[in-house]
């Protein structure tokens, strides 16, 4: 059983007729994801790749059991799309849209809490369980996904979508497959942080080690460290922290919206310190990662 998404996870796409959504829908079908339909208001009745397009989420949830939705609509419509999904009983939301207003993100998080739903993202490329299914567009077209991702026992979580694939590829090239890889999203507030998802990885028998990628800024690492101090993980944990040079450049934003050093706690140095105190192996050089993981798995 893979976590978050598996072979049988039934998925819909909100905004399916958009340019980006249409292309990742096709790629995901090629990869074997069970996408059952899509929603675009005003385009109900059309078909995309043989899938029904409806005006409302309800028309799909009435026809199929739906486990997960991919939300790929412009920023002003994300909140309503997410509410529609949650109120129609969908319990896993992936939001790929970038630049969603922060208030809307927090309101979605609050509704998720009330209803027992989970949001990944916003600004996430998605979730993949290699060889089984994929939610979103992480890794690109199916043939490219197969080059970078192979099934195995290492979990990956990354604040950068591109680095999710880069790390999977590094593991793959060195003979290490992956259980599940999650692009958690590069925004200041995301629905699922490291500390939220670590439980899910720990509960997964197929995951034997967990690799994290992070950047300066944000509070995700201190939340993870707090969780680990309270309750150490059964998994060997590794983290690569990029952007050391940003430590010296307060107030300048690099890369993702959240990648900004405003205070001491935002620096890579502070993050490395609190995480290594909490038992996480801080990887200094990316190419050393596979060796360290192998050691932990064989030791």
């Amino acid at each position: 059983m893979a976590i978050l998404v598996d072979k049988d996870t039934s998925i819909i796409v909100q905004g399916i007729t958009g340019r980006e959504a249409a292309s990742f829908t096709k790629d995901s079908l090629d990869y074997g994801a069970r996408i059952v339909g899509g929603v675009t208001p005003g385009k109900g009745g059309q078909e995309v790749f043989g899938l029904p397009v409806t005006d409302t989420v309800r028309e799909l949830t009435e026809r199929f059991p739906v486990d997960a939705t991919i939300i790929s609509v412009p920023p002003p419509f994300v909140k309503d799309a997410a509410f529609e999904a949650i109120e129609n009983g969908i319990r896993l939301l992936l939001v790929v849209t970038e630049r969603v207003p922060r208030r809307d993100v927090v309101e979605i998080v609050e509704l998720c809490r009330l209803r027992g739903a989970r949001m990944i993202g916003p600004n996430s490329l998605g979730v993949i369980s290699p060889g089984k299914s994929r939610l979103g567009m992480v890794g690109g077209p199916a043939e490219d996904v197969r080059k970078s991702y192979v099934p195995g026992n290492v979990g990956v979580m990354s604040r950068s979508g591109g680095m999710t694939t880069e790390i999977a590829n590094l593991l793959t090239v060195n003979g290490l497959g992956q259980s599940t890889c999650v692009s958690v999203g590069g925004d200041p507030i995301v629905g699922s942080q490291f500390a939220d998802l670590i439980d899910v990885f720990e509960a997964d028998a197929e995951t034997h080690a967990l690799v994290l990628f992070t950047e300066p800024g944000g509070a995700m690492e201190s939340a993870l460290a707090a969780r680990l101090r309270e309750r150490p993980s059964r998994l060997p944990l590794f983290i690569f922290i990029a952007g050391k040079f940003v430590d010296q450049m307060r107030g300048v934003r690099f890369g993702h919206a959240a990648t900004l050093v405003q205070s001491e706690a935002d620096t890579t140095e502070a993050k490395a310190r609190i995480l290594s105190e909490a038992g996480v192996t801080v990887v200094e050089e990316l190419s050393a990662l596979p060796g360290l993981v192998k050691e932990a798995l064989n030791g």
Binding site: R159, S160, G162, E166, F213, K244, F245
Partner: peptide, 28 residues
């Protein structure tokens, strides 16, 4: 360099190996 995370990784790596970057940038 690019994207967001990889550009940070690449910049650090250049400095780590004794290189002197003339700039940061981001292609995506």
């Amino acid at each position: 360099i690019g994207g967001g995370g990889a550009s940070l990784t690449a910049f650090d790596a250049v400095q780590r190996h004794g290189g002197k970057p003339a700039n940061y940038c981001e292609i995506g």
